[in-house]
Simulated scan of single mutants.
Amino acid sequence: MQAFLKGGASSSKGASTSKAQLQKQEEALASKPWVEKYRPKCVDDVAHQDEVVAVLRKSLTGADLPNLLFYGPPGTGKTSTILALSRELFGFQLMKERVLELNSSDERGINVIREKVKNFAQLTANSLREDGKKCPPYKIIILDEADSMTKAAQEALRRTMEKSSKTTRFCLICNYVTRIIPPIISRCSQFRFKSLSTEDQKKRLWMVCEKEGVKISQDAMSCLVKCSEGDLRKAMTYLQTAHRLKGAEGIDEKDVLEIKMVVPDDIIKSLIRSCASNSHDKVQESVDYIISEGHSAAKIISQLHDEVLTLSSLNDLQKSVVMEKIAIVDKCLSDGADEYLQLMALATTLQRQIAL
């Protein structure tokens, strides 16, 4: 009888433990950034990269996987694609042993290639997954931001790729393929990731909004996609930030612009009007207001650039003079120059060109 009671107690204890573990998993999932929470789990979930998905799907049917080179703008799914492929090839548990992910912007020296990469590439791989399915006889090394690697590290990697070709596949991920040395490029199959279309971004963002209970207007969604410039990761981060700030109130276009730190159009147009007034005091007053409001000078010149391009009061020669000054001011700001002085210098240049 006591043994029976003990067994019942242990089974109830096991049930409560499993419930506690499930609750912890749910809490951990709820606290995850949406970028990670809604990262594609399989290759077919990758959006707007049909050519890449079509080629990689063949490797899931038994075809051998070559060394890969993914390049393209940020936030287009390069890292998500190779992680989803690895998850489908190896399974969730075995993926931890068979995939080595390194960020080359932090670890980009030749010692990393000689030690971490070389040692991992020399390890043998099992042929069975935890679910009993056959597993590819190779490992995958992911080198994210590979365009930050030093030239010496890339040259050392070239030899490592040749020696470990039987047991290891490499996936290099970068934004600028021109920064990868030609011998590395020739050893990889290249895939260009395109910026996501407006429709694909909206489709994925509306799906997230539905699952997370986010209230957002159509105008705000269009503004969110426009501000992200094809970067889905950036758009999803803005969406989560806006939702945490507004909650049940709902997100409108103004909220998106505030989170993106976009300078309101009326401030930019007011600055242009003050330059057209031919009054130095009004120009100074506009610049003082911009600085007092805490707007970034870099944002001001970026948006002013777009406005100047459409100004009908300036001819092409005058616009080129203003654009040259914008480039000089941008360089000065990156070197740490005073924002107020640089904005005044740009505004007076624009004032002189309008007065001509």
Rank of each mutant, 00 (worst) to 15 (best):
S228G: 04
I181T: 08
K194M: 07
F170S: 04
K166D: 13
K202V: 15
S189W: 03
K215V: 10
S186Y: 08
S189I: 14
A220Y: 01
Q201P: 08
C171V: 12
R159I: 13
A156W: 00
E229N: 14
L205P: 01
G230C: 03
K203P: 02
G213R: 08
C171S: 11
M149F: 03
K226T: 12
Y176H: 13
L157Y: 06
L224K: 00
I185P: 04
A153W: 05
C223D: 10
C174T: 12
C174K: 04
M221E: 01
S189D: 02
T198R: 08
K202T: 13
L157K: 06
V177L: 05
R179C: 04
S217T: 15
M221A: 04
L205H: 00
I180Q: 02
F193R: 11
S222T: 13
E155L: 14
I181D: 00
C227L: 12
S222A: 13
K203E: 08
S217L: 09
C223F: 04
E229P: 11
K203S: 07
C174S: 02
R159F: 00
I173H: 01
R187N: 06
C209E: 05
A156D: 06
E199Q: 14
I181F: 09
K166Q: 14
I173K: 03
F170P: 07
F193S: 00
T198N: 06
C209G: 06
S165K: 13
R179L: 11
S189C: 14
S195M: 12
G213E: 05
M161A: 08
Q190M: 15
Y176T: 12
V177I: 15
R187Q: 12
Q190H: 10
Q218N: 05
E155T: 10
C188G: 07
V214Y: 02
S228R: 07
F170W: 10
E155C: 00
I180M: 05
R187F: 02
S197Y: 00
K211W: 02
V225Q: 02
Q218I: 12
F191L: 13
T168Q: 08
S165E: 10
E212S: 03
Q154L: 04
M221V: 05
F191S: 13
I216A: 00
L157P: 09
M207W: 04
Q218D: 11
K215W: 04
S164D: 11
M161N: 09
D219Q: 12
K151D: 14
D200K: 14
S186L: 05
E199D: 09
Q190E: 09
V208G: 04
R179M: 08
Q190I: 14
Q154H: 03
C171Q: 03
L232Y: 08
Q190L: 15
L232T: 04
D219L: 10
W206P: 07
R204V: 10
L157D: 07
Y176M: 12
R192S: 11
S148T: 14
K203M: 09
A153Q: 07
P182D: 13
Q190P: 05
S165T: 15
Q218C: 10
R233V: 12
T167G: 08
E162W: 06
